[in-house]
Design a protein around this nucleic acid. Structure first.
Lengths: 268, 268
DNA sequence: GCAAAAGTGTTTCGTTTACACCCATGC
DNA sequence: GCATGGGTGTAAACGAAACACTTTTGC
């Protein structure tokens, strides 16, 4: 087999990308991992990623690999940095450029289809391949820092969400608990949330939900008691079912204005 | 000439490092640039940096290049990130990992010796080679963000400094003005500054200064009036001469404690 | 109807801001 | 002795934190 060869005057490290994808199921912050099919670290879990092509930026490469390996088609990632320890890959000198990404609940559902990809709650993450444990630690530090200045929460929630959902997310990321009343005040005072009117129930329940809320009442009223648990079991891993409460959406325009004037700061 | 060749199955980008070195002369924040001696961008100014060796991390490579090109022998740098635009180097695909470093006043004096290295005040920086203008913008954003969480100021000042010096530095970095009294309060309340006692004048003026403060008085008293300007001209770029006021030093141990408990925040 | 979560205001406390005068030094 | 910069305290305004009860929803 005649493979093309590439020759350089000086040795060069290989360059890969890795992407730490965060998702939120309403309770736990999760990350998306791939089970490695080949050595080294065969059978171990690792971040989706791979070798960088010559005609793409690191961002583009990371997004391409993410799609190839997990089916997730995201648009925004944020660079964490380059990891360049000499022995981080036992095969040869490999430098990786790490990113993190935020997946919305609706995207998370679809992502699970892909081959060996699986979501892990942060406190259930196994030992990872290469230096990915270290990369994860650094990425978490970065996420916790960024969340004070950027509307990260909204990248992890669907178009519409409730304040308590948002609060649980902040608590999951930062590992602390907030007073509900103070959280309401603080987040609403920023002005970056719009209350969503109820006049269209289709939006209520997100794209996955097709019944109107009146239909639920009708359903529950007409179906025998023993059939209800089955319905709710079938939906138990889909939180869109229990979307009660006032829904809000993220007002990006307003946020960009505040950001422009350096006037945005979320102090928790 | 028989040069060693390195051959790979897939093409690889070249990897370089670049280092944005900040210094502070008491009034302006400055950066250290190198005049390029070869194409591309021959004659243009650029950050010190160069190709990464296979047996060193990016950090080590950046520090090595910094020493080779400017004579500055620093120990700490902070990664800003990888820059990977496909066409950022007209010769070929080159990815650079950028860092920033902080040089103390005493180190800055020595750094000037090196060949083509020169300090530029931030508002006098010329058009830079490659994408270094962009890298500088990103690095400044990073520095302004970091300064809220890390004692960056102290990396740019000598062992001992006065509160007004520190204030000027913060003002230079953030581009704003602070009320003097409030700055005193805020910075002292953190508890990370120790007041330095006057009982040893040698420390007063830093390592470059060998005269005791009484000697300055004696000098000025005994030398004829016309000779003073010459003395002060010779020293005019060396602010250690006019170190008046109460001096403080950075209490790293105390800072590390606060940092440990996530209790450090410098809110300006 | 019972349990769990959503929604809402007020008071207390600490932090931030604004502001003016005296002192020491350099020249 | 004049100009420049260093050093200090207090009052007002604002934002953060603590706190409990009622309503709605799910089942």
């Amino acid at each position: 087999m005649e493979t093309q060869q590439y020759t350089y005057k000086y040795p060069r490290p290989a360059v890969t990308t890795d992407c730490v994808v965060f998702g939120f199921d309403g309770h736990d912050l999760k990350i998306l991992l791939i089970e490695r099919g080949i050595e080294p670290f065969k059978g171990a879990w690792a971040f989706p990623g791979g070798f960088l092509n010559m005609d793409e930026t690191a961002e583009q490469g990371a997004l391409r690999e993410l799609k190839e390996e997990t089916g997730l088609d995201l648009r925004y990632i944020k660079q964490v940095g380059a990891f360049s320890d000499v022995d981080r890959d036992p095969r040869s000198r490999v430098i990786t450029i790490a990113f993190y990404a935020l997946a919305k609940k609706s995207e998370v559902q679809g992502g699970d289809d892909a081959a060996k990809a699986q979501w892990f709650a942060l406190n259930e993450v196994p030992r990872l391949a290469f230096d990915h444990d270290y990369i994860l630690r650094k990425t978490m530090e970065r996420l916790r820092k960024d969340i004070h200045f950027e509307p990260i929460g909204f990248g992890l929630l669907d178009e519409q969400f409730t304040i308590p959902e948002l609060q649980r997310l902040y608590e999951a990321i930062l590992g602390v608990q907030f007073d509900r009343r103070n959280f309401y005040k603080k987040i609403l005072q920023t002005g970056i949330l719009d209350e969503v009117e109820d006049d269209d129930d289709r939006h209520y329940y997100g794209e996955h939900r097709e019944m109107r809320s009146m239909d639920i009442g009708a359903l529950f009223g007409s179906i025998a008691a023993e059939s209800r648990p089955s319905y709710s079991a079938a939906r138990s891993d889909d939180d869109s079912r229990r979307r009660k409460g006032t829904r809000f959406s993220f007002n990006k325009k307003r946020y960009d204005q505040l950001k422009e004037d350096n006037n945005f700061r979320l102090e928790f």
